[in-house]
């Protein structure tokens, strides 16, 4: 088999640019998804039915429809009225972030509800308000338990970010496709992209493992 390293070398600048954009979009979506997910998760736990219902609908929609459709809907339907034009990078971050929030919301909820009720009761009995009990007693313990689940979610997000090549965001998958088109070869672009995605996700899982041990 002839595997042409020379074309990978030739295409390296584009692949590097694509990789950096993949990292950028993924990080931004992780930040958006984690922050939004916290709000959505608390909404899901709310005692107010009028709040719980739309939040459940949100979670069900984003967990129950294909991400590629969510990307297309955000890109073509949601973003243009807001920005006045399409914007692939913004749509990519928004779609991935909204999708991520639906999953992290459940991670927050499960993590918070896994903390023994006695912890909350002890905090309340000392005069802490609900907010203080959450901040000083529940969340610090819950976050540690959430880390592995967050790790899984973030790894999925990095891999799924490849779907935004569909809306012509010039990230890693986009450039792999372009490379395939230019050289009419599949092995070099796709194996290279696979290796790069693997390095990204593997590094992240190692990083989170380290954080989990340190917390």
């Amino acid at each position: 088999m002839d595997f042409r390293f020379d074309i990978i070398e030739y295409y390296a600048p584009q692949l590097l640019k694509g990789t950096l954009l993949t990292i950028g979009i993924s990080l931004a979506a992780i930040v958006v998804g984690s922050a939004l997910g916290l709000g959505v998760g608390f909404g899901k736990m709310s005692s107010v039915r009028a709040l719980r219902w739309p939040v459940s609908a949100y979670i069900n929609f984003f967990r129950g429809t294909p991400l590629i459709l969510q990307v297309l809907i955000v890109h073509f339907i949601l973003i243009p009225p807001i920005l006045g034009t399409t914007n692939g990078v913004v749509a990519a971050i928004a779609a991935l972030g909204l999708n991520c929030a639906a999953y992290t919301a459940e991670i927050y909820r499960a993590g918070i509800q896994s903390i023994d009720a006695g912890q909350r009761e002890a905090a309340y009995s000392l005069g802490l308000t609900r907010r203080q009990a959450m901040r000083f007693v529940i969340l610090p313990q819950a976050v540690k338990r959430m880390i592995p689940a967050f790790g899984n979610e973030f790894i999925v997000l990095i891999k799924d970010s490849s779907l935004v090549a569909w809306i012509a965001v010039p990230e890693l998958m986009y450039w792999s496709n372009a490379m395939k088109g230019q050289y009419l070869r599949v092995w070099e672009p796709y194996l290279t992209a696979a290796l790069i995605y693997f390095i990204l996700t593997y590094s992240l899982s190692k990083l989170l493992g380290y954080i989990e041990r340190r917390v």
């Binding site: 002890a122 309340y124 000392l126 005069g127």
Partner: peptide, 20 residues
């Protein structure tokens, strides 16, 4: 209620110390 609870201490069967 938090203000009232601040004046009423409680000790639990399972201690409920904050482990972190």
């Amino acid at each position: 209620i938090a203000a009232v609870r601040a004046e009423v201490g409680m000790v639990f069967q399972r201690f409920n110390l904050f482990p972190h």
